[in-house]
């Protein structure tokens, strides 16, 4: 479906009325991360001829993190490239309906994180992951690393759920859908905001109800927005909010079900807004030291920027639009880009 279905959110939700500030090094950040992806074999050939190459993930990262040192924006962009390369490996390959095969793909990746290095002769996904981890983990505590690995394990489970759903055609009930979809959405990505912002969110903040709504709500809004834009009757993933809603409520997907999903995104954004307003007083009660309080605020601010950043990224990236005619020269990476 068309991303224009989501654009009214930017008018209707006060928290999304202003476009994000964009990192002034957007261009080199995109170039450097693409070069890394090529060097690891995650992007092959003409970037625009692949779904991953059309992702332009730097445009998402540079909106969420407009103030960080460029190297850290590059690193987060590379993580996104890796995650989407993994997703595409599963979605586009023969293993897409086999939970056993998906699990076999994931097992060496989980081991890579535990070992810290890739095996000799490892796959491109393994070697790329080892490189990312080696540049991300130093400086982060054992607690953070454990949380990250836990969330990677959630994603693994999400991928298994998806493979089973593809094979059996069974979809989760709408009430269970948010939690199932959240696992598939790469929950570890939000953990990566902390090393990107050179901070760690302390346990007492992670346990706050407002914080949990902020994190889960941000994941839900971006995941469901993806669902809305990516939906096709023969979609890569059956774990799609539009598909689930249409099936469960017997609604036409492109009209009534899509409208319902749109309304749910809106409602979830309002919940995130309430959580944001509750967060300030809760943080003051915790009396964090200034350095920690500032780090938490930066992570929260990045989370709150994510829905609008994601909306604008969906509008600009080519991942969810039809593949272009290869005979037409690519407009990609012309030096002049217009940013909002």
């Amino acid at each position: 479906m068309d991303v224009s279905l989501l654009l009214p959110l930017a008018d209707r939700i006060p928290a999304m009325t202003a476009p994000c500030r964009v990192h002034e090094r957007l261009w080199p950040i995109g170039e450097e991360s693409l070069a890394w992806a090529r060097s690891h074999g995650l992007v092959l050939g003409e970037a625009d001829s692949t779904r991953i190459g059309r992702g332009r993930f730097e445009r998402l990262v540079c909106r969420i993190l407009p103030d960080v040192a460029p190297a850290r924006a590059v690193l987060l962009t590379e993580w996104l490239l890796w995650l989407f390369a993994l997703d595409d490996t599963i979605d586009d390959g023969p293993i897409r309906r086999s939970a056993t095969s998906v699990d076999a793909l994931y097992e060496p990746l989980a081991l890579t994180l535990r070992r810290g290095t890739a095996r000799p002769g490892a796959s491109t996904l393994e070697t790329a992951l080892a490189d990312l981890w080696a540049r991300t983990a130093p400086g982060m505590s054992q607690d953070w690393r454990r949380r990250f690995r836990d969330h990677l394990a959630w994603h693994r489970q999400g991928c298994l759920d998806e493979a089973v759903a593809r094979r059996t055609g069974e979809l989760p009930a709408p009430s269970r859908y948010p939690a199932v979809r959240r696992r598939l959405h790469g929950p570890f990505l939000l953990d990566l905001l902390e090393p990107a912002l050179r901070t760690e969110v302390p346990d007492e903040v992670l346990g706050l109800r407002a914080w949990q709504i902020l994190v889960d709500g941000t994941a839900d809004v971006t995941a469901w927005s993806n669902d809305l834009v990516a939906y096709t009757p023969d979609a890569h993933s059956p774990l799609n909010h539009v598909a689930v809603t249409a099936r469960q409520l017997d609604l036409p997907p492109r009209t009534a079900a899509a409208v319902l999903v749109h309304e749910r995104i809106w409602a979830r954004l309002e919940e995130v807004g309430h959580a944001a307003r509750a967060l300030g007083p809760e943080l003051r009660r915790l009396r964090l030291d200034p350095l920690r309080a500032r780090g938490v605020a930066r992570v929260a601010s990045a989370l709150l920027a994510a829905p609008r950043a994601h909306l604008d990224w969906l509008h600009e990236c080519g991942r969810y639009s039809p593949m272009p005619d290869p005979s037409v020269p690519s407009p990609r990476r012309k030096p002049r880009v217009t940013l909002t």
Partner: peptide
């Protein structure tokens, strides 16, 4: 610049104000 961004973020989060509101 990140120190200034951090001050801005702390101010906004204190009021529950997202960086993407007007």
């Amino acid at each position: 610049r990140e120190d200034l961004a951090g001050l801005g973020a702390r101010f906004l989060i204190g009021f529950g104000e997202p960086p993407t509101s007007a």
